[in-house]
Simulated assay, not measured.
Amino acid sequence: MTGPIAVAGDVHLGAENADAEAFNGFLDSLLSEHEAVTELVLLGDVWDMIRRDPFGVAWESADTIDRLQTIAESIPVRLLLGNHDTYLGGLDDSRYDVAFLDDYVLEQAETTIRFVHGNAFDRLQFDALSERLSGPGDRGDIDPTSGRKDPLVATLREAVKRGHRGLRALPLVGTFAGVDAGRYSRRQRRAHAFLDSIAEHKLVYGHTHSPYVHHDNVAANPGSWKSTAPVHNTYLLVEDGVLELYRYRDSGADERLG
């Protein structure tokens, strides 16, 4: 039987509001308890290479890379590509002892789980734009809006949600249509509907920075490590096919959220 698996994503190393110190502490806890966790899955956007020199980002996060390399000596580390680290997909695999994945499927306790980044469920995100803004080359600061970008995007999303509120009452197609209506955001509902199109029993995805576990434990998002998210520094543990959400604490036991 496979032991517990840790899942994290959306660290955005290189961004000013990324809590790199907390993420490194989380990795240190995995190193000290490596016999308990048997695998680490990172759901993409571990680095933030939008408008940044990717080599500069790597230099700044060298201590995190060292930790990941050390962990990889003991347990498998699966690295998925996100829309903010698209540049990594173009690296020559023969020069690096790492494989970047678009998705990953694992079986645990007769339960199959698919892991994806999750940007496909976000209609406000465009791959072509991410590829254009990602390295190589120095294209300025990670956030030219000086911290105003995230609140502005959140405000725009809320306005869009208000505009579509009336549409939420309309019937949806799929197994989760009835139970999801009014309970989950549109991006979460798209992720749940995606389960109808795949063979796996469960889905774990990132990108939205909103941590949660579906009430039927069939989908989950580990959240992010950006301090601008209302709830951050969160991760998932997957054991016996069950998805559990935790918040990392730099002292004491981590907090169970769901």
Rank of each mutant, 00 (worst) to 15 (best):
N24K: 11
F26H: 03
F26A: 07
F26E: 01
F26S: 00
L27D: 08
L27W: 01
L27I: 01
L27T: 11
D28P: 03
D28V: 08
S29D: 12
S29R: 14
S29I: 02
S29C: 02
S29H: 03
S29V: 02
S29Y: 00
L30Q: 08
L30K: 07
L30H: 08
L31Q: 10
L31N: 04
S32P: 01
S32I: 07
S32E: 14
E33T: 12
E33H: 13
E33A: 14
E33W: 00
E33D: 15
H34Q: 09
H34V: 15
H34A: 15
E35P: 00
E35M: 04
E35S: 14
E35C: 07
E35K: 12
A36L: 12
A36Y: 02
A36S: 13
A36F: 01
V37Y: 14
T38L: 00
T38S: 13
T38Q: 10
T38H: 14
E39M: 10
E39Q: 10
L40C: 07
V41A: 05
V41Q: 05
V41Y: 01
V41L: 09
L42V: 10
L42W: 04
L42R: 01
L43G: 02
L43D: 03
G44E: 06
G44M: 00
G44F: 00
D45Q: 09
D45S: 10
D45I: 06
D45E: 09
D45A: 08
D45F: 05
V46R: 00
V46S: 06
W47I: 03
W47Y: 15
W47T: 09
W47C: 11
D48C: 11
M49T: 13
M49W: 05
M49E: 13
M49G: 11
I50S: 08
I50W: 06
R51E: 08
R51N: 15
R51H: 14
R52I: 10
R52E: 15
R52T: 13
R52V: 09
D53C: 06
P54V: 02
P54R: 06
F55S: 13
F55Y: 12
F55I: 12
F55L: 15
